[in-house]
Amino acid sequence: MATELIGGIELEVDEEGFMTDPSQWNEELAPALGKEIGIDELTDEHWKVIRFLRSDFEAQGETATLRRVSTLAGVPTKDLYKLFPKKPAKKMSYVSGLQKPTGCV
């Protein structure tokens, strides 16, 4: 298992760099993860998505898709693409310390 030192923590990551142990994540870590992928500042809107993803993961055991975030957290699709440009599903998962979503939609 590969590890990566981010935010002062030796994180367990998969071959793509996504964290494999969600319990290693905490809210202090998110800004450091964001910086890794070019999101310099996490706004309240980012946090709304991140907190939804974390609580939804706890309840469902898997990472929510964009569709799920837009319908259940009430963040419009357009905004998700602005907050996490180009690859919103992967970027929001990464910052939230979760695997990328497995669902198709």
């Binding site: 981010i6 760099g17 992928i37 070019g38 990464y94």
Partner: peptide, 9 residues
Amino acid sequence: MPKFDDDGG
């Protein structure tokens, strides 16, 4: 870290 390839997209 994941390769998001923003520039090479």
